[in-house]
Amino acid sequence: MKPPRNPALTDRLGIGAMLALAVLSLVILVAPSIIVLMISFDTRAFVSFPPQGFTFDWYRQVFAQDVLVEAMMNSLQVGMAVTILCVLLGVPTALVCVRGRFPGTTALSVYVLVPHMVPGIVLGVAVLFAGALVGIGPSMGLQAISITVFVLAVMVRTVQSRLQRLDASLDEAAANLGATPFQALRTITFPLLMPAIMAGAVFTFIEGFDNISVAIFTHGFRDRPLPIELLAMVQSVNTPLVAAVSGVQILLAILALVAVSFSIGLDGVND
């Protein structure tokens, strides 16, 4: 590709401004996390920039506080429950959406999207009220199942788009070689779908762990998840402790990023 050799001044200025804005955006995206990480090693007991000294004390304190550790465990449990439920419910649904031989497969893929299109807080309020009417109070289970329904679409869409690009003749070949549909599914389709399932699992786990909009209405009052605990803490605590909790979460995010790039490759996220 060859852009014109001697671009006019306006052209240079315009493109220069575009690129400057792009760099600014990228800085805006990454700077906050770096600043939080720097603060989390500060030796002073108040939040100030630039940080002074270097200590792991705040991280030690994070794991010494029962409330925080408990909240982390709660969020881990919810995250894992959401992931498992999304795999169990979502993968078969994606299969049906793509391979179903009945009228209404399109309607089904739209139906899966419904809870995801609705604002999280509206779903949260609706589930809270509906639960209360039949005597189900807010709890960790209610939180997990509501978030599952909220993010199921992510899993279905990820697996669905991978499935659409799979060569259907692979299945036919398996059938011609005498495999039952179940055998074909287990030995051919599933291994090929694994990367998509993994990527979906990472994103649904993160949502289960981090979700606030749905969780704030449905979480059990004795089992507060980490984001809810953190929300209260940010408003009341002014030490680098919060930064250290954030540091732990950033580490988790980096692990998730590595997991995604190993499963579908970073470029795969776009589908």
Partner: peptide
Amino acid sequence: LLSGRGIWPAVPAIIALTVVAVIPF
């Protein structure tokens, strides 16, 4: 059940979506 030709594999998801999202709405 699992061939994916019929609607059966999607039934649990449909039930979950209906009970936890649509009915509450």
